[in-house]
Amino acid sequence: MVESPRPAKVDMVLVGVGGQGTILASNILADLGMRIGYDVKKAEVHGMSQRGGSVISHVRWGAEVHSPIIATGAADLLLAVEQMEAGRYAGLLRPGGTALVNEFTIEPITVITGGAHYPSRDEIESAYAVPARRLLWVPGAAVATELGNKHVANIVLLGALSRLLPDIGEQDWIDAIQRQVKPSHREFNRRAFEIGRSDAHVPGPGV
């Protein structure tokens, strides 16, 4: 990949449904950012919202990071482990920013029994139209099924993300993942990352 100067700051939000591994993915990103020399803040919410509710983590890299929360319209990157949540939090992404969205749906109870509407892919994409931001679909759930572990879609997304941050070496990513997952889970997480990183759907480079 082409060498490019490391960005002065990278603000990332990770969204999904409680239990999908957004916290693990944000732990890996915070660990990685610190190892490669950034000041780092990672903010997440525990407790009630983890029970199948909508969840969000903020990870910030920079020379000196103050606020743990990324302002509306200021995130450089958005990772969504669930499609509908990509629509819900679209407003956090800055103009020109990129969203990586796992092709995977979990219907909220308001849809299952309340008769509420689950948004189509077109509707979700429309949330990124004005101001223009890039939305890239990532087949994280399909890869996870292929690997026989339903929980690694988050790591596939990190693999796709790594293509957008080309100045960070692959080994730095893999080391950060290995430090944050159980030893018995290291091998399939490494494979999930590599498949995500090699995925032809995700163009690179550049935040």
């Binding site: 449904v17 409680g18 009630m48 919202s49 983890q50 029970r51 199948g52 509710g53 909508s54 509306t72 319209g73 509908m84 949540e85 629509g87 819900r88 679209a90 407003g91 909220p108 109870i109 308001t110 849809v111 309340g114 509420a116 509407h117 689950y118 948004p119 509707e123 979700i124 429309s126 949330a127 004005v130 101001p131």
Partner: peptide
Amino acid sequence: VAALDLAPRPP
């Protein structure tokens, strides 16, 4: 940003 009118996802 004009927000999508999405159903809530309560715990």
